[in-house]
C-alpha cells in the first residue's frame, strides 16, 4: 500500500506566494490545503475529514496575526498538537520568541531562505 502523502495546511494571504508554496509542496510529494486567511484556515480545520499533519503559517494575515491564530489553535485540544511553522517576513526576534513560546516549531524569514529549504524544514517538523 503506498504511503499516504503528508497534508500541510498553508495559511498565506499573498496569493502569488501561496501559488509558489502550493506548487513546491506538490512537487515534493506533499498535499497542500491552501487558506488565504486565518478565518478560512480555522473553518478548514473544522471541516476537514482528517486534520493536517502540519500548518505553514504566515505571521501577518489580513484578519488576524500569528499570535491570535495560535490562540485559536489552543482552544481546541485536537488542534493544539498540530506542528506549526511560522514563515514570515517580519524578522522581529520578539515575535519569533512569542510564537515559539506559544508552541510553534519553527520561525523562518521568507526572503532569507530558498523555498526548497523551507519545505525541507517543514517536512522535518511534521
Amino acid at each position: 500500500m503506498p504511503r499516504k502523502p503528508l497534508v500541510i495546511l498553508v495559511v498565506e494571504d499573498e496569493t502569488l506566494l501561496l501559488q509558489a508554496i502550493v506548487k513546491k509542496l506538490q512537487m515534493s510529494g506533499v498535499e497542500p490545503v491552501s487558506a488565504v486567511s486565518g478565518r478560512q484556515a480555522i473553518d478548514y480545520l473544522n471541516a476537514l475529514p482528517k486534520l493536517p499533519d502540519g500548518i505553514w503559517l504566515d505571521y501577518y494575515l489580513k484578519d488576524m496575526d500569528g499570535l491570535e491564530f495560535m490562540e485559536e489553535l489552543k482552544k481546541n485540544p485536537a488542534w493544539a498538537n498540530i506542528p506549526v511553522m511560522v514563515v514570515t517576513n517580519s524578522a522581529s526576534p520578539e515575535k519569533a520568541h512569542r510564537m515559539l513560546a506559544l508552541g510553534a516549531k519553527g520561525y523562518m524569514v521568507k526572503s532569507d531562505y530558498r523555498l526548497e529549504k523551507v519545505v525541507e524544514e517543514m517536512k522535518k517538523i511534521v
Binding site: L16, L17, A20, K110, S111, R114, L115, E116
Partner: peptide
C-alpha cells in the same frame, strides 16, 4: 521589512522554481 520583503520573496521563490 514586511511590504518590501513580500514581493522580493515572490521573485526569489518563482525564480528558484
Amino acid at each position: 521589512s514586511h511590504q518590501l520583503r513580500t514581493p522580493l520573496s515572490s521573485i526569489k521563490w518563482f525564480a528558484e522554481m
